[in-house]
């Protein structure tokens, strides 16, 4: 298994040992960290191992995890509270490719905000996918948030506009805007998203206060493309990394953080409304080498 292999690898550790570094590279590749970032971590680890004259497994483990955390935090602060509007309505826009978990993440965050005593409204900006509006409505019911929607096939920008008006009128604290899944290479769909974004910007200064790119942890190297393309049409301020309850490690967020400076803000660990967590680079690095540190 993964853990055993890692333990074996650590047990065999010699900082001059090429085999060790090759195994380390495999492990990182296996976590979807990507070739370039993997090489960078491996090189850095080589260097640190020499500088610190590492001899023991424990030291190697510690340095490895620390190296990763440092590299990540170089470009991204560990955890930053998401951006809120101190004077009124906070608007959060959720974007991403198909099926990653946008709608569910909205439900989870809505639940959390409501638990904290806020009023929350949801905008059903996915008017395209079969059952998308009903899905958000079921969630709205469960968590106790009003849902603003139109009929299937309606104009998503109009729904957003309508929701912004209603949220302001009703003095709602948070408006969470759902959008249809779209692949980043579909120009017309990305244009549509840009339009929704413009409507929000125009109606409320400084909004959207956060634009969260929802990423499925099982995604491989394509996630980097996703981040780049979505960043071109919206101002992505953070990532919600979903489905971390599976066996995928989500290592690509490391490369995204380094290359694009987009921090992970939330982690999804299941399908129920309580399964949203804050991201911690430490936990994440440990997670890549799970059970490594007892």
């Amino acid at each position: 298994s993964f853990t055993r292999r890692f333990k074996e690898m650590m047990a065999n550790f010699r900082y001059e040992d090429e085999e060790f570094f090759e195994e380390l590279e495999d492990l990182l590749i296996e976590s979807d960290v990507g070739f370039e970032a993997t090489m960078e971590i491996s090189d850095k680890m080589r260097y640190e191992a020499k500088v610190e004259n590492i001899r023991t497994v424990e030291d190697a483990e510690r340095v490895l995890v620390r190296t990763m955390i440092e590299m990540y935090e170089e470009t991204n602060p560990n955890y930053i509270e998401f951006n809120k509007n101190p004077k009124g309505l906070t608007v959060l826009l959720f974007v991403g490719v198909n099926g990653v978990g946008k709608t569910t993440t909205i439900a989870k965050l809505a639940h959390q905000l409501i638990e904290e005593g806020n009023s929350v409204m949801l905008a059903a900006g996915d008017t395209f996918r079969a059952g998308a509006i009903q899905q958000l409505e079921v969630w709205g019911d469960r968590v106790g948030a009003e849902v603003v929607s139109t009929e299937q096939g309606g104009d998503p920008s109009a729904v957003v506009f309508d929701a912004l008006k209603q949220a302001e009128e009703k003095k709602i604290d948070y408006l969470l805007v759902d959008t249809a899944g779209r692949l980043q290479n579909k120009k017309n769909l990305m244009d549509e998203l840009a339009k929704m974004n413009r409507v929000i910007e125009r109606e409320i200064p400084d909004a959207p206060h956060e634009t969260l790119l929802v990423l499925d942890a099982t995604t491989g190297q394509n996630a980097l493309n996703q981040a780049k393309q979505f960043q071109e049409v919206t101002n992505i301020t953070g990532i919600a990394l979903t489905k971390m309850d599976g066996t995928a490690k989500g290592g690509i967020v490391f490369a995204i953080g380094k290359e694009l400076n987009i921090p992970v803000k939330f982690v999804g660990l299941g399908e129920s409304m309580n399964d949203l967590h804050e991201f911690s680079s430490e936990k994440f690095a440990y997670g890549l080498f799970k059970d490594l540190v007892s």
Binding site: S31, T218, T219, G220, A223, T247, A248, I252
Partner: peptide
């Protein structure tokens, strides 16, 4: 999902082990 990364083998292997799937459909 065609965008799946390295975890694809774990998923496929495990579904196949448990269910003896007959074939695969690659989406997106």
């Amino acid at each position: 999902d065609a965008m799946t990364g390295q975890d694809a083998v774990n998923v496929a292997d495990s579904f196949n082990d448990q269910l003896d799937i007959s074939s695969v459909i690659l989406t997106k």
